[in-house]
Each structure stands twice: as C-alpha cells, then as structure tokens.
C-alpha cells in the first residue's frame, strides 16, 4: 500500500505535467520576462545592444502621452461599449422572456451575433461604413469624404457600435439566463401584492440579477481593454490616433517600431489593470456563490 501511495503521487505529477509545461513556457516565464524586458531600453537603430535602465523606463513611458493617450482611448471605449451592451442585451432578453408562439426563433436570431467573430463583424461594418459605396453614407446623404471611420469625433463611437453589435448575442444569452433564474413565485408574490410590471422589474428582478449584471460589466471591461481586432481592421488607430487603444499601441510599438522595452512596460501596465479587474470579478463571483448557497 505504501507503493500505491507513491504511485499515486507519480501519477498526479504525470497528469499535471502537460498543462504545467505549457503554463510555465507560455504564461509564467513570459510574464516575468515582460517585466524584465521593461528594464531594458532598446537602441534606436537595429543591431545595437539594448541596455539596462531599471525603473526609469517605466516612469518615463507611463507618464508619457504615448501611453496615456491610448489608456484614455481604451477607457473611453469601455465607457461607450459596456453600459450600452448590457442595457441592450437586457432589453432584448426582457422582450424575448415571455412565452409566445415562435419565440424560439426570435431567441436564435437574437443570439446570432455570437456566431460572428470580431473580424467578421469588422469587415461587415467596414463595408457598411465605406464612404463611397456603404449604405450608411447613403442614409446620411453623404458620398465620398472621409466617412465616419475617418472622422476624429465619430471614429471611436463607430468602432464601439461594431463591438456592441458583435457582443449582442453574448449579452442576450447571459441576460436571458439571468432572467430565467429569477424564481417565478417571487414575481407572482409581488404581483399579488399589487406591484406593477415596471415596479416588479426594478424592485424584484433587477436586484436578483444584479450579480449577473456585475459579472457582465466586469467581463465587458476586461474585454474592452483587450480590444484589438476591430481597431486593426477598421481604423488602424486613426484618424490621428483617436482610436489608438492600449493593446493596439502595444502592438505597433512592438511589431512595427520594434521598441520591445517600451511595449513591455505598457504590457505590464495592461496586465496590472486586468489583474485588478479580475480580482474584482472573482470577489463578486465568490459573493454571488455565497448568496446562492444561502438561498
């Protein structure tokens, strides 16, 4: 039996090794390495060695507009997408909650954008928003010019619309599941107590689904800070940097400008922002699990 225990330990390590090998090589090592790369300033010309500058690169990059402007854009983008996405998804879920003939078909249609990827959605809207041939230009009576995506004021909101549309399916599915988890008897009790439809929604349903709303908000914020594909396909950060979000800036700094040091510093900053948000998310999930157990 002693040997069985030893065998179990060996088996356990054998079973965890594949996952951990991947984690070590592609998660933990690069995470540490990113912080480390942030200490080295890359020489202005290729071929020259980069040299150690310690934290000074962190302080210069993080206080510079090349970081602060994209951070601002990312924040703005999150503010544009998250509340609207949740509100519209919830509205659709409420509209499709009541049992009606054919409601299944509507639910499938409402969830359908889940089947579009960021790239598909971006290309679709790219053609729609095309200043010459796009339908949108026709509707607002314009032809030619820079179009919405070339307009400094409207470019970021336009990208936000694409993201919101692409996420409608997910938001709808999430909100529908939340509504379905509200016990029918609670709503009936409120109705018997004379609460109107609107009152029932805001006083009973909303508090009960608030954990899901929080969850959706945090997930949305995290995804918002990781936005890349829409920007790359729709605006390449333009016009004049107005849609240059954090991850896109990291990408161009690293991939186009080959400034590994600066890009690493910004990646570390992005990581810290996301960790903070993830921790908030975990604590909410834990609290929610607690609620659920109590009920």
């Amino acid at each position: 039996m002693r040997s069985r225990r030893t065998r179990d330990v060996l088996l356990a390590y054998l079973m965890t090794v594949p996952a951990f090998a991947a984690f070590v090589i592609f998660v933990f090592y690069p995470l540490v390495k990113t912080v480390y790369l942030g200490f080295y300033r890359v020489a202005p010309f290729p071929g020259l060695p980069s040299h150690y500058v310690g934290f000074s690169q962190y302080s210069t990059v993080l206080s510079h507009s090349q970081f602060l402007a994209p951070l601002f854009n990312s924040t703005l983008f999150v503010l544009f997408t998250v509340p609207t996405g949740i509100a519209i998804g919830l509205g659709m879920a409420v509209a499709a909650h009541r049992q009606l003939r054919g409601i299944r078909l509507f639910r499938i249609v409402f969830s359908s954008t889940i089947a579009t990827s960021v790239a598909v959605a971006s290309v679709i809207f790219f053609t729609l928003l095309d200043p010459t041939t796009g339908l949108f230009a026709y509707w607002i009576g314009q032809r030619g010019g820079t179009g919405l995506l070339g307009n400094p004021t409207f470019a970021l909101p336009a990208v936000a619309v694409v993201s919101v549309w692409q996420n409608l399916g997910f938001s709808f599915i999430l909100m529908s599941a939340a509504l379905a988890s509200v016990p029918e008897d609670l709503l009936e009790a409120a109705a018997i107590d004379g609460a109107s439809g609107g009152r029932r929604f805001f006083r009973v349903t909303m508090p009960l689904i608030s954990p899901t709303l929080f969850f959706a908000a945090i997930v949305g914020v995290i995804a918002g800070f990781q936005t890349f594909g829409q920007i790359d396909l729709l605006t390449q950060g333009g016009p004049n940097g107005h849609t240059n979000v954090l991850l896109y800036q990291i990408y161009t700094t690293f991939y186009i400008n080959a400034d590994t040091g600066t890009a690493s510093v910004m990646a570390v900053a992005l990581f810290l922002i996301l960790v903070l948000l993830t921790l908030v998310q975990f604590s909410i999930i834990q609290r929610k699990v607690f609620y659920a157990d109590e009920r």
């Binding site: 998660v27 090592y29 690069p30 990781q226 890349f228 690493s264 990646a267």
Partner: peptide
Amino acid sequence: VPAEVTIIP
C-alpha cells in the same frame, strides 16, 4: 494573465 499581455516574450 491574458494572452495579450505576454505576446512579446
């Protein structure tokens, strides 16, 4: 640790 953060290394 989202994959986006570790792309450089």
